[in-house]
């Protein structure tokens, strides 16, 4: 589904040049649950941003279902990821001025889905995330776990093929963290491809494969035997 070939990412300032990704190559199969692990600053989030077309690689090529997207400009990147890729961030990244319903509805607005269908899909997601009773609440009125459930809801409402989760449990306690992981795991069981960056070994082991990063290089890969979990 996703194929990265020799992806290099260099951050440049006037004084410093930082090599964040050093010719990384890997692929993600359709329906796979891939975890990316590594110490802070090893390039995990940068890799996720490049895969998610939120950032462009300095060098290398990125393919989505055989289409080379590495040369895409800003506008093309946005058009391409629209409806195809859902994002879950460590800090939730909900819009504080919008309530739960409006936050979840956001990707559907930009996809120009008709109002009735939007409403049905948002309600379906609210139900799935068990957030119906909070639909008129604003992010600051919710707990961290609830905010992340809303963020996951927003990521899945457009039925994307791929969900990229950047430390989705990083700001959550273990109970809420496990709950979010259960949701992601269920989504994967339903066929959604998931790439997740995490520090937590126990959550990484819920994925089918773990890529270990160090200083912008892939140093190893582990394949997990189990694909189900209990709560």
């Amino acid at each position: 589904m996703v194929r990265a070939e020799n992806i290099v990412k260099i951050f440049r300032t006037e004084e410093v040049e930082t090599l964040a990704l050093n010719a990384i190559s890997f692929s993600v199969e359709k329906g796979e649950f891939l975890a990316i692990m590594g110490p802070s600053g090893c390039g995990k989030s940068t890799l996720l941003n490049v895969i998610g077309l939120l950032d462009s690689p300095t060098k290398g090529r990125l393919f989505y279902n055989g289409t080379d997207v590495s040369g895409f400009g800003e506008m093309q990147q946005t058009r391409f990821r629209k409806g195809k890729i859902g994002f879950v961030f460590q800090s939730f990244n909900l819009i504080n001025e919008l309530n739960v319903y409006d936050n979840i509805e956001l990707p559907l607005l930009y996809l120009r889905i008709p109002a009735t269908e939007r409403s049905n899909r948002v309600k379906e997601v609210l139900n799935k995330m068990q957030m119906e009773h909070r639909e008129r609440h604003y992010p600051q009125q919710l707990s961290g776990g609830q905010q992340q459930r809303v963020a996951v809801g927003r990521a899945i409402v457009a039925n994307p093929q791929l969900i990229l989760a950047d430390e989705p449990t990083g700001n959550l306690d273990s109970e809420n963290g496990l709950e979010v992981m259960k949701i992601l795991s269920d989504l994967n069981q339903e066929g959604t491809t998931i790439v997740m960056v995490t520090h937590a070994q126990e959550y990484a082991e819920m994925a089918g494969r773990i890529i270990h990063l160090l200083d912008g290089n892939i140093i190893s890969q582990d394949y997990m035997q189990h694909t189900s979990m209990t709560t």
Partner: peptide
């Protein structure tokens, strides 16, 4: 800036 980035990540185009 953050709101604009979130909206773009969720599909907002530059004209929008």
């Amino acid at each position: 800036t953050r709101e604009i980035a979130i909206r773009k990540a969720n599909g907002a185009l530059i004209p929008e």
